[in-house]
Nucleic acid binder design. Structure first.
Length: 282
DNA sequence: AGCCAGGCGGTCA
DNA sequence: TGACCGCATGGC
């Protein structure tokens, strides 16, 4: 157990906002599986310091929680209107997380047309059946080889529905090296996106989530049902939307409107909408 | 019961 | 291209 003193960081918002699915809260403590490690974290209310119960190093968490991001500077760059301004101030300290590419890829393939509790349940079952037990009740995320070789009847027990075949195929591509994570890191956003979208089960939204949360593409702007509703409800920038109604166009708009760190803007808007619905700006 | 959830892929005009 | 539909599952 050790202590970290992160600046401008809110653990609760960061783990609760819906970007990760394997952290659970019990009182003030969060427990999660990161790689082969079971991790417990608590942030003290007054001091803001982080209590870490884990084998992983301080440097790891600094990297994992993107403490290297200059948040004030990012806030300044994305603060374009009253709605995002409110979200930034209300959920101050929410940071994006650097997720493991493989786990992130499969998780968001399993997230299509599902509520967050359902997604969490699928990943829990998948880990329980195909991962390795780390300590009592906690399992690692299954590796690509295991999922590539799993038979569909077993995958079915994880309640994946029509997503089962898709993740098996994706796992096979990762195993064979046909899908190369290192290459995705090096590719520019739009090319990495095109590459991911060649997989069955990955459209614009899933590709954007994976690129944002695992491949350092801050200029991703995932347009899910909440973001679509926000844009339609507030008529942000309505001169643009006279000619733009579909989801693809909304993504393009987000990148233009919020700039390079639009991924951060997206996450704040998404969380605010999930927690508070359509907020009043008066 | 019916609709929606961090959607995608196919079809049909 | 744009609108509609089926796809499994679960929560409300």
């Amino acid at each position: 157990m050790y202590r970290l003193e992160p600046e401008l960081f809110d653990l609760n918002y960061t783990l609760d906002c819906g970007q990760v699915f394997r952290w659970e809260r019990d009182g003030d403590w969060w427990t999660g599986v990161v790689g082969e490690n079971v991790v417990r974290l608590l942030q003290e209310k007054e001091s803001g310091s982080l209590l870490v119960d884990s084998e992983l190093s301080p440097e790891f968490f600094s990297h994992y929680f993107r403490l290297d991001d200059n948040l004030p500077s990012i806030y300044e760059s994305i603060n374009r209107d009253l709605l995002i301004d409110r979200a930034i101030n209300r959920y101050r300290g929410l940071r994006l997380i650097r997720q493991d590419p493989w786990e992130c890829l499969i998780s968001y393939m399993l997230a299509t047309a599902s509520s967050i509790p359902t997604i969490q349940k699928r990943i829990f079952l998948l880990s329980r059946f195909f991962g390795q037990e780390l300590e009592d009740g906690y399992f690692s995320f299954p590796n690509p080889e295991t999922l590539a070789n799993a038979d569909l009847s077993l995958l079915d027990r994880c309640k994946l529905g029509f997503r089962a075949e898709r993740i098996k195929t994706a796992a096979e591509e990762v195993c064979s090296g046909e899908l190369d994570f290192d290459a995705l890191f090096r590719l520019e956003y739009r090319y990495a996106r095109e590459r991911l979208m060649r997989l069955r089960g990955i459209g614009e939204k899933v590709a954007d989530c994976v690129l944002l949360f695992a491949f350092e593409k801050m200029e991703s702007f995932p347009v899910d049902t909440h973001i679509r509703q926000i844009i339609q409800h507030y008529h942000i920038d309505d001169s643009f939307f006279e000619t733009c109604t579909n989801l693809s166009c909304m993504g393009e708009w987000g990148r233009e409107y919020f700039g390079h760190y639009c991924g951060y803007a997206q996450e704040y808007l998404y969380y605010q909408k999930r927690i508070e619905g359509f907020v009043s700006l008066y």
